[in-house]
Design a protein around this nucleic acid. Sequence first.
RNA 1: GGUACCAUAGCUCAGUUGGUAGAGCAACGGACUGAAAAUCCGUGUGUCCCUGGUUCAAUUCCAGGUGGUACCA
Length: 298
Amino acid sequence: MKTLIAIIGPTGIGKTDLSIDIAQKLSTEIISCDSRQVYKELKIGTAVPSESQLQKVTHHFIGHKSIHDYYNASMFEIEALEIFEILFRKYNHVIMTGGSGLYINAVCNGIDDLPNADQELRNELLQRLQSEGVESLRMQLKLIDPDYYRQADTRNPKRILKALEVSLQTGKPYSSFLTNSKKERSFKIIKIGLQRDRDELYDRINQRVDQMISEGLVDEAKSFHPYKDLNSLNTVGYRELFEYFEGNISLEKAIELIKRNSRHYAKRQISWFGRDKEIHWFHPDNEEKIIEFINKNQ
RNA sequence: GGUACCAUAGCUCAGUUGGUAGAGCAACGGACUGAAAAUCCGUGUGUCCCUGGUUCAAUUCCAGGUGGUACCA
């Protein structure tokens, strides 16, 4: 049976090292499932694997897009499934590792088919959000798609924007596209979750930020400053430094904020993964137990 | 050693004319189907330094102790 081993966990938990070890033991390749490591320009700040690590095991979806490209979870789902098909011809196991919950779900459960975003319509809606405020968009959504309006978090502008965008573009309510069903996959999926004590995780995150700074994160971010409004750069580790470049905060403050925002991000990931009852949890140091578990369940 | 001031949430501090307390930051919990490292929602978490005293009641007043800061020796 072809098996996808998904190694899941918050940022800084130790996914990279463990995944490479396991991939080597199983003689297979790694699919990265990370919404920021896909951008080739972002290296230090997204903690991509080192050159020597990349040489040990073939990785996919690291640096395959530019920060100027549009990318999303659905595109990842489609591309990842294509790669799986190729890899499963060669291997019985493939490893997927990462912390982007939405992307993981897209691969494991699938997401519904929607038309691709119409950039013009999106910009128009964004402008209306600015000039008219959320309330106007919210009321329009209530009229066009009362079903979605009832269940959605209407205080979150992004939810409203997406629903309106799809509804207006297709002439059909956004909710009519939501099937609430899980897509079947041709391979088995084992989900391995990694966890540590919170204090230990936060120490690792703080230390990793200091390390990124000494590896030259400030210079890396500086070179992207002209593009700071790109979605790909609305990313922890970069946006705080843009504030520093613009003289709004000190470098010390920026570093402190990068640490804090990374911790907050980790917490959000823990919340997301906590809902997934299919995940089997391990400490990252328990590699033997993890391998034993994989062997038993394949 | 003497004098003065201070001691309240993880930190910086406010406050209670005596009725067990609050702000900023930090922290914590959660939601989330195409921008997701995004976006959104919720929560004070406390031996008010310790021990006695006065009082119906002390974090608040008094005494002593401990710790800190400043000045004088």
